[in-house]
Design a protein around this nucleic acid. Structure first.
Length: 307
RNA sequence: GCCGAGAUAGCUCAGUGGUAGAGCGCGGCCCUGAAAAGGCCGGCGUGGGGGGUCCGAUUCCCUCUCUCGGCA
């Protein structure tokens, strides 16, 4: 039996994935599923560089602006939502084209997520209180006692992961290091084609800087002022630009400085994305140069789509 | 032209008579319910050129070059 096809288009922020994706999707009768932790939010169009409504008319996009910024969102929700859409597309004969730069979201789609241990607010609150009172070393030592395998992988300053590992253990009595061994991805049942877009670091960084400039000319400030009237969830407020520009609004530094920080943090983010993707040997990398149009790049990808 | 200040890591600068550091930048890495988050690691640089003093100079002295400020 022929396996059903799924395509992934990955790459760092600002590389130009979105435009290429639209062009590719038209060629192969695909619909796009965003693989981006921030573009899921409503009212955050400019700040997250969502594709224009014009492009959305050409190809159907999923998981763009579907969550209110007051709501929290996370990997588990993404996996649930994305796979539901993926199934629907496959059922009607469309190819799902995952496009984005959130490495973890990509990974839990392709490789799976370990059995559900949702957050537990009460346990978290307790752990966070202990963190404040006794410091991260105390929590780390606790983790070493209950799950030394997890502790060996987590740095003692990485409080987020220490807390999660403890949370999982306290809630279920099972070690997170044990649970992490069982994950089921798509690879077995589907034919996956995974592309990564990259370019010279220098031109990537230049593109990122330019894109931030463009956000400002598109009305970033107004969008943000409107957005900040809402109480943002702790996930939504992580989008690059919010923290940076809040400082300007508070009069701590100039707008120019805020923009500089946005550009710098976006560059750092791109670098981390590349580190994440680099170790995944399934990705077929396409190096692009600035003279190529999205359509030309899409054509290149299309030619590599022999299933 | 004269007076003053300076010339040290890609940038801004600190410091010391026994061959150098900090921030930023930059690079590498980790990653399973916050992931655009969070965490870790990485600095041999002709200490502007030349000469002198000294066991030894980036550090003291002389000189040249350049930069900045002031005066003409």
């Amino acid at each position: 039996m022929l396996k059903k096809k799924i395509i992934f288009l990955l790459g760092p922020t600002g590389i130009g994935k979105s435009a290429v994706a639209v062009s590719l999707a038209k060629k192969v009768n695909a619909e796009i599923i965003s693989c981006d932790s921030m573009q899921v939010y409503r009212k955050m169009d400019i700040i997250t560089s969502k594709v224009t409504s014009g492009q959305r008319k050409k190809v159907k996009h999923h998981l763009l602006g579907v969550i209110d910024p007051e709501q929290e969102y996370n990997v588990a929700k993404y996996r649930r939502d994305a796979l539901a859409i993926c199934d629907k597309l496959l059922a009607k004969g469309k190819i799902p084209l995952f496009v984005g730069g959130t490495g973890l979201y990509y990974s839990i789609i392709v490789d799976g997520l370990f059995p559900a241990v949702p957050q537990d607010k009460a346990i978290r609150a307790k752990l966070e209180k202990q963190l404040k009172l006794k410091g991260c070393k105390y929590l780390y030592r606790r983790l070493v006692r209950v799950d030394s395998a997890a502790a060996a992988k987590i740095h003692q300053h990485d409080t987020r992961r220490i807390i999660r590992a403890l949370e999982v253990y306290l809630k279920t009595g099972i070690r997170i290091s044990q649970l992490q061994k069982s994950r089921v991805g798509l690879g077995k049942d589907y034919a996956l084609k995974i592309f990564g877009l990259n370019s010279k670091r220098q031109s990537l960084y230049a593109a990122i800087d330019r894109r931030v400039d463009k956000m400002f000319s598109l009305g970033l400030i107004n969008e943000l002022k409107r957005l900040l009237k809402h109480k943002l969830s702790r996930t939504a407020k992580c989008a690059i630009g919010i923290r940076e520009l809040k400082g300007c609004f508070a009069g701590e530094y100039s707008l120019a400085e805020g923009k500089r920080l946005m550009q710098r943090n976006s560059r750092h983010y791109a670098k981390r994305q590349l580190t994440w993707f680099r170790k995944d040997k399934r990705i077929q990398w396409i190096n692009i140069n600035k003279t190529e149009t999205p359509a030309q790049i899409a054509l290149k990808l299309w030619k590599k789509l022999s299933w």
